[in-house]
Amino acid sequence: MTAYVVNKYGDSNVFEDRTVETPSPDDDEVLVEVAATSVNPIDAKIRRGDLPDLSPLLPAILHGDVAGTVAAVGSKVTKYNVGDRVFGLAGGVTDYPGALAEYTVTDETLLASVPENIDFEAAAALPIAGLTAWEMVVNEAAIQSENQVLVHGGTGGVGHFAVQYAAATGADVVATVSSAEKADQAGNLGATDTANYETESVQAYTAEYASSGGFDVVIDTVGDENLARSFEAVAPYGTVVSTESSSVPRPDLLHEKALSLNLVLTIVPLLTDEPLSRLQEGLKNLSKHTSAGDVSPLIDSVYELSDVEQAHRRAEHPDRIGKVVLEN
């Protein structure tokens, strides 16, 4: 089969197309004929060599998101049959092979059925970003209808799902954006209001949109240095949930405001001995809410799998809105 392999770390031009052996599923695994995958920040970070502890051995096949058709099943697989449409997590980290290939294998627990109302390209945009947003909004922040919520990066890969999940609770949701086009998209996703972080100060939009000295919950899909803005915007005793925390600026505000800071890394079960069933439940919820129309993936652009270099370049561009998808 053809695979797009990283043999060294670097820019988006490090991908090489190679002919490799088609994998065979173990007893509890499913062989998926890849129809589509999508780019997540973790894919770019591994490609660049920024996450050595999470990176697979080189040469490596990257990308965690997968959507496609079941081509073969292991002897103990009970949930799926050949020909089923599935989406989920392929891996692309540590010992788990990724989805940048014609076929990939993955544990049946890491898959769910593709909702009937979406195609493979949309399904491939769901797994990591959708699961991360679910963890942030539902499991960690437990957002309620009476909450005032700020979502940083409201039209990003995770952010656009977070806006939809938060809005579905009935909460007032303010999304930070960087352009009028992104503001329109955030409104379409359910944001009550938007704030342009390039032209408006944290103090200004917090005073305008939050009525209790700050937002009850801040969903920070940017993290790191942006956490300082989150700590400024959140109300005393409030909750900040983020995906990035290699540095925590303004720790004084954490103490002064008695804040809760919760961190999310969806793929923890792939990196530890935590049960994969947590991811299975998340995928089922994602499928259910997508089927019901509560959430819908926002796709920026679609590339051929062979154009993975261009896809990664687009995914890292600041003008991107939603997810970048590759189809096979």
Rank of each mutant, 00 (worst) to 15 (best):
G153N: 04
E316M: 11
D11E: 05
A125Q: 00
V248K: 02
Y209H: 15
V77Y: 08
V264K: 00
L126Y: 00
V268H: 12
E29L: 04
L100W: 00
T243Q: 08
T106K: 06
L126A: 07
G156R: 07
I118Q: 05
D27G: 14
T109V: 13
V32P: 04
D43E: 11
P275T: 01
P115G: 09
E281A: 13
V105C: 07
V234T: 13
A166H: 08
R48N: 11
L283M: 01
P297V: 00
Q164C: 04
E102C: 07
D53V: 05
D119L: 03
S306T: 10
L283D: 10
L253V: 01
S242M: 01
G223C: 08
K76I: 03
S242H: 00
S12K: 13
D27S: 15
D220L: 02
A258K: 14
D50G: 08
T155E: 03
R85E: 11
H312I: 10
P251K: 09
T109Y: 13
V70W: 04
G170D: 02
T169P: 12
K79T: 15
L259R: 13
A233R: 09
K76T: 14
D65M: 01
N13S: 15
N226C: 10
V70I: 03
S201W: 08
V73R: 11
E309G: 11
V218K: 05
T106R: 05
S246V: 13
G213V: 11
D84N: 11
A71G: 02
V234P: 06
I46K: 04
N262C: 12
A3C: 04
G213I: 09
V114C: 03
